[in-house]
Design a protein around this nucleic acid. Structure first.
Lengths: 195, 195
DNA sequence: GTCTATACACTGATAGAC
DNA sequence: GTCTATCAGTGTATAGAC
């Protein structure tokens, strides 16, 4: 109750909402779904988030972005200095989080919201995921470690790869995620052509 | 009306439904949205697709998959024999189609359908997109053109990259898609490390 | 904090006229 | 082929009791 919204009950509400929203997307999840996951009634959600479904989604997403930004930056900071170490640290950290399918979020969920919210969230996604990786590539290029200077393209590329490996259905009998990530990063660093 | 469902009106219905479904996802699109795009009333859709919304979505998706499978295979067949030429041909063909966000489709749209449909569609996605690319990588490995034998991982990787470039919001002032694709393919083939 | 009750809009779907 | 009319079900949201 002290600072703002740190009551335990509210945190549980946000947790349940986040799980469902990130799993199925904004329109596919109903307030009843979220309430049911909490064993409460739908109307009770309005005590914690008076703004209703849209406000709940925005709050959940914003919290998710901040967690990703901070966690990803911390993982990159504490990783070894080589580009490979940084990319593997990014992979490990992303895999430690529930998949957030930011592609669906940007192209399906956000258009269902108001344009101003949509724009703000887009910026948050950039700051949380793309920007940290971009800085890693910029630094690696300044070091002479890599030849490409297009950090924006490279960060988008890596993020797309990691996200796709992360949200693969389990029965696609694929190798463990970290094994896949290691192989993909190897390809990005050394290429497919024999050296 | 000769063969089966080749009336002009039905094709227009499927086209409109496809555009909306692929843009916003299954749950976010209502039958009234589709009808409105066709300047007809919602109930009229049931003349063309008696099975209702679910049947309409399945039919649209199945048609989309077949088009992707045939188009992609044709593009790969007519491309130059080098791996680079094949991958660029795949990129060009995918970019010629409306983005289909198959990530959202597998993780959000399909779970809202019956499990049997879900499974069938998953298989179709594999045959339409992953399998053709997989064969390209298998062949390239057999040729000795590339060192990695994990065609499954590589095809998923390439598909994720191309799809992410394809469905980028326009205002993310990024290079043209084909330029991005060329750079990404270059990275995959030669690696980021200086050679 | 959570409940019941309810208002009200919207959704998918069916029946039948034209 | 498309329409109007209508229905039951479900969705978000509000009011007020406990």
């Amino acid at each position: 109750m002290m600072t703002d919204e740190h009551s335990e009950a509210k945190r549980r509400v946000l947790d349940a909402a986040e799980r469902l929203f990130m799993e199925r997307g904004y329109t596919a999840v109903t307030l009843r779904d979220i309430a049911q996951a909490l064993n409460i009634k739908q109307a009770s959600l309005y005590y914690h988030v008076p703004g209703g479904k849209e406000a709940l989604f925005v709050e959940v997403a914003e919290r998710n972005f901040l967690r990703h930004r901070d966690g990803l930056r911390a993982a990159l900071r504490e990783a070894g200095s080589s580009l490979r170490a940084k990319l593997m640290a990014a992979a490990e950290w992303l895999f430690s989080q529930p998949p957030m399918d930011f592609g669906r979020m940007m192209n399906s969920d956000m258009p269902a919201l108001s344009p101003e919210l949509s724009h703000r969230m887009e910026r948050s996604v950039y700051e949380a995921l793309l920007q940290p990786l971009e800085e890693v590539f910029q630094q690696a290029h300044a070091n002479g470690e890599i030849w490409s200077a297009h950090a924006g393209v490279l960060s988008g590329m890596v993020l797309a790869i990691l996200e796709s490996a992360h949200s693969l259905p389990p029965h696609f009998n694929a190798p463990p995620k970290l094994v896949m990530a290691a192989e993909m990063i190897e390809v990005i660093l050394n290429g497919l052509y024999p050296r």
